[in-house]
Write a protein that binds this DNA or RNA. Sequence first.
RNA 1: GGUCCGGUAGCUCAGCUGGAUAGAGCAACAGCCUUCUAAGCUGUGGGUCUCGGGUUCGAAUCCCGACCGGAUCACCA
Length: 592
Amino acid sequence: MTLEQQISTLAKEAVKALYGIEAADAQIQLQKTRPEFEGNITLVVFPFVKAARKAPAQVAAEIGEKLMADGSGLIARFNAVQGFLNLVIDDGFWVKQLQAIDADANYGRLPNRDQLMMVEYSSPNTNKPLHLGHVRNNLLGFSIAQIQEANGWQVVKTNIVNDRGIHICKSMLAWLKFGNGETPESSGKKGDHLIGDYYVRFDKEYKKQIAELMADGKDEETAKREAPLMLEAQEMLRRWEANDPEVRDLWTKMNNWVYAGFDETYRRMGVSFDKIYYESNTYLEGKSEVEKGLASGQFYRREDGSVWADLTKDGLDEKLLLRSDGTSVYMTQDIGTAKLRFQDYPIDKMVYVVGNEQEYHFKVLSILLDRLGFPFGKELVHFSYGMVELPNGKMKSREGTVVDADDLMDKMVADAREISKDKVNTLQGITPQEADEIARKVGLGALKYFILKVDPRKNMLFNPAESIDFNGNTGPFIQYTYARIQSVLRKADTANLSPLASSLDPKELALIQRLCEYPSVVRTAGDDFSPAVICNYAYSLACDFNSFYHDLSILNEPDAQKKALRLLLSANVAKVLKSAFALLGIEMPERM
RNA sequence: GGUCCGGUAGCUCAGCUGGAUAGAGCAACAGCCUUCUAAGCUGUGGGUCUCGGGUUCGAAUCCCGACCGGAUCACCA
């Protein structure tokens, strides 16, 4: 039973005995005592003032006396300030908490709930490399998966790769026309970047043709429609749909280049998937699902042959599901993907990590899946996150303001390495490989924390002109705290510790109390789908430790019992920091 | 125009299921390394929580209205 639960029970009994009222759970308001007052936990007594018909301070004092009498030593003393009853919990309680935390190797992990959650994230197009927006998506998706796993879900991480469509045809066409057989091997370029270059090349040549046609007197719309390159790309898409072997072979070859590039980026980012779906395999399933819905009267066909869902009863519009030429749209594909997933896994909850610009799409998808009989449809979660903006607004590939994922990671690791150069004292005697590892972990830690600490729902700003910090409320600050503890532990003889001290310094107590919060933080992060909650907690814990570390000596503490307690405390702070960072997908360096 | 989301220090962000004097970091300034890692610690300055109403013992937090910013409302994905 947690401290809150114990106090809550005691408080209810006290209020009943004193004032004869049955307090509801919502009326028992407990909060952490503010640092300017003495105490660990505070009961807000305003809810009982009316029934007591006494001044708030007097009510607080009366409840305090009662809790002292009934609490069997749990509460050492109390003070009442207005309607706030500040309770000082006995040191012995905290020491026992620390021992319990130490004994639990999986501290923070909540009981299994035997239910399966599928988390879809990343979901790239195969025509260009990953950029900063994808980075936010991938980091959030991976972290959410870790957090939900810690909340007891069985989690399947999945990715739906948008591998077909006009966009990839554009890259293919440009490569055929202008590529001279260039390959990742021959050019030394990562496959995704190579394909991205040809996508840009297509756009450039296409614009040139439009300009030429307009110079010949065509209006812009006509020029766009009649540009030979566009006609060729569309023809290529038709050949792809018709399974033309030549087009299919090229498509396979070029997509594989992209996948090799993506895999490298994913590996570097530290994200992974349990199951990958490809749109080229799911869109036909979607069509057949729509046909079924049509047969059962869920959907209807218009005169031109297009198929629609009428969502006006749900307060939405009518939504196109199949074009008049019978081809599928985005929604059709997501329906097909959902069907395959449901065949493959007993999904209890489906989570889509997709930007907030697609909220309407997922609102519609939820309704459609529900109508088609998917049990998770109605309750699907669109984990809708905000955009990453630059000082001048959104990233635009046309304006060359896209922040490339690989470049950004390179820069972060290089910055970390640069900073490490000054650390000759702490990093002496390490091999170049170890130095590389530290720079990698710290650089990526800075990037990941920078992104994950922001409330996912909000748009966030990235300024390429300013480098991401390594000081203050950052990933490296927390990694540093961890490395510092490891350094102390390496020097300590932890083999046979003496019994623990039974009284606590305030800094020790604050740290233990903070450690006790961890499981509820994990729960909140899971309920709210918020890695930022974990970031905030890890930061607070690191701050508390650094304050403790600054004020109190660990290894040089003469009192063996105090030393033992501080070592145990330090080890468990490190354990929780590492655990919290694992939920964020951030690795801890043993030294830095 | 309809719907949704946001507006907190110069900047980037916490805090939002109502609680005590609204917090961090960055930037600026001033201190602390012969002592467990100074990527650290301590201090100073910095606020009309966009504005106006309402609800109540109490509002940055909840409700209503305005203003500002963003997203979305395709036979694109």
